[in-house]
Simulated assay, not measured.
Amino acid sequence: MSGKGSMSREKSDRSISSPVTNDISPPIAGPFKGLSIQDKLLSPFILLAMILGVIIGEFAPNVHNALDTAKFESVSLPIAIGLIVMMWPVLTKVQYETLPAIFSTARLWKHIAISVILNWVIGPFVMLALAWATLPDLPTYRTGVIMVGIARCIAMVVIWNDLAGGDADYCAILVVVNAAFQIVLYSPFSVLFINVIGGNKQQSLHVSYGMVAISVLIYLGIPLLAGIVTRYGIILLAGKDFFTKRFLPIFSPLSLIGLLYTIIVLFAYQGHRIIHNLGPVFRVFVPLILYFVIMWTSTFGLIYHLARREVPQAAHDRVYGYETAVVQAFTAASNNFELAIAVAIAVYGVNSEQALAATIGPLIEVPVLLALTWVALYLRHKLNWVKPSCDLEAPEKVL
């Protein structure tokens, strides 16, 4: 009996000391204590940027025309500049040297499959259903909302993922994959969801692949290339230690500047029209808020559920965890609003209600997803991301 008890205690000790239990969810003193002062002040900064943008749009009537004239192939250059500056530092942090090894793992392909299903099967139909349920009597605004729903993530998701502590490498991969799908699918999805399913027969809708490809190239290709060149240029010239400890702390705040500038431009662009169309605008708020919350919470919950059910043999075999839950949740909930705005303006005109509804998308997405970054950090602290240690027995070779 004593020998059997000794073996039982030994097995229990081995399980508890397994490296699996030490790799997934390190002790966190508090959900927000690791945030920098800059991150903690981001919410009031964004609120001030929104107010400033609305003031500019209302009291500087010519700003709308000035912003609208600065274009390249239906892409707003003022918005493009802000988004490029915003994404550049974040994409500089990605460890591109590790991507070949990541692509060789089965876990990545599982996450790609999940992301593609969420973004190109579930997400567009969720937005379609919400648009019809909440805007049955506003067909033009409904069309703009649907155009936001079929424009999947490529831009601000990298900011939210970075703030919430998600896996930067996985985020970059999923953003690039969804951008490639976007080039192929946005045009046929536009016709399908607006003309066929939506029954919009008054005006034919044609979205060229070239327009979508140019938008994706500008909003993702330029900051991605800039990030790669910056990362390896600085490392080559000054070394990785200088890049990590001295360059990134100075360079990273540029993302905040780009984000605030973009918000000011977006609110200035449609601030006057928003104030003078408050009734329909508040109606458009409803499907957008519901969409962002439903997609984020259901995706985050799905990955957490899969993480709890997972019983890997070793730490490196684990597929699901907090970092990937953040990536998937923000990738599923975010939208490529810049593409939706560009297409709506090109098809229906800059003063159309469709363009106004598309522009409201980022005005809601920014505060809602910013709030969800705080929710993610709180859930990282509150939820148990590790299965009980007795369920995770490591192989003999790692004991």
Results as ranks from 00 to 15, higher is better:
2 S>W: 09
4 K>F: 10
5 G>M: 08
6 S>L: 10
9 R>W: 13
10 E>V: 15
13 D>P: 05
20 V>A: 10
21 T>F: 13
23 D>R: 06
25 S>A: 15
28 I>W: 08
40 K>G: 09
41 L>K: 04
41 L>F: 12
44 P>L: 11
49 A>C: 02
55 I>F: 04
72 F>T: 05
74 S>F: 12
76 S>E: 02
81 I>H: 06
87 M>S: 02
96 Y>Q: 08
104 S>P: 01
106 A>S: 13
107 R>M: 06
109 W>S: 11
113 A>L: 09
127 M>D: 06
127 M>C: 03
129 A>C: 10
133 A>M: 15
135 L>F: 04
139 P>W: 07
142 R>S: 10
142 R>F: 11
145 V>Y: 08
152 R>L: 15
154 I>N: 00
158 V>M: 15
166 G>N: 06
173 I>T: 02
175 V>P: 02
177 V>I: 15
180 A>F: 14
184 V>I: 15
185 L>A: 01
191 V>Y: 15
200 N>H: 13
200 N>D: 10
204 S>Y: 03
213 A>N: 06
223 P>A: 07
223 P>M: 06
229 V>K: 00
229 V>M: 11
229 V>D: 14
231 R>F: 14
235 I>K: 11
236 L>T: 15
237 L>W: 10
242 F>E: 02
242 F>R: 05
246 R>A: 12
260 L>E: 06
262 T>R: 04
267 F>W: 13
268 A>L: 00
270 Q>M: 13
278 L>T: 07
280 P>D: 12
281 V>D: 05
289 I>A: 10
294 I>H: 13
300 F>C: 02
309 R>V: 11
310 E>C: 01
311 V>R: 12
317 D>H: 14
325 A>S: 15
326 V>W: 01
329 A>E: 01
334 S>L: 03
339 L>K: 02
340 A>H: 07
345 I>Q: 07
346 A>H: 09
352 S>Y: 04
357 A>N: 00
359 T>A: 13
369 L>A: 08
370 L>C: 05
377 L>S: 07
384 N>E: 13
391 D>M: 00
392 L>E: 08
393 E>V: 07
397 K>I: 09
